[in-house]
């Protein structure tokens, strides 16, 4: 017999997971890939359009936009100030 007691916070259902709206400035990107690799939710992927210097800026992978939790790792690690997050109310979008 296995007895499993899982403690759940009583206010669990009141917690809101933030949603991040991803903003990109294509002309600044140098395709280093940091934002793509370090996103904990694998929201981003390499795009197929190129900017004037020939770099492919990131885009949101198919169906992944709502998974962004606005942790801002992409924004902080980007050496080019080329990607940033605006936090939004998840209920309005998802």
């Amino acid at each position: 017999m296995s007895l499993k007691i899982v403690r759940e916070p009583i206010n669990k259902y009141m917690q809101k997971i933030p949603l991040g709206l991803i903003h990109i400035i294509p002309e600044r990107c140098k395709e280093c890939g940091y934002c793509i690799d370090l996103c904990p939710k694998d929201v981003l992927e390499v795009g197929d359009e190129r900017n004037i210097k020939g770099y492919r800026w990131p885009r949101v992978a198919d169906g992944k936009a709502a998974e962004c939790i606005a942790c801002r790792m992409c924004e902080w690690i980007c050496p080019e100030f080329a990607i940033f997050i605006v936090e939004a109310d998840r209920r309005e979008y998802v």
């Binding site: 991803i22 903003h23 400035i25 600044r28 936009a65 100030f81 080329a82 940033f84």
Partner: peptide, 23 residues
Amino acid sequence: VVLRERIVDESPRDDLIRRERFP
């Protein structure tokens, strides 16, 4: 609305950088 990335030409931190010198 359908969520996807938004293409813009400035960032909120452009107040503290010399954006005209970017990239």
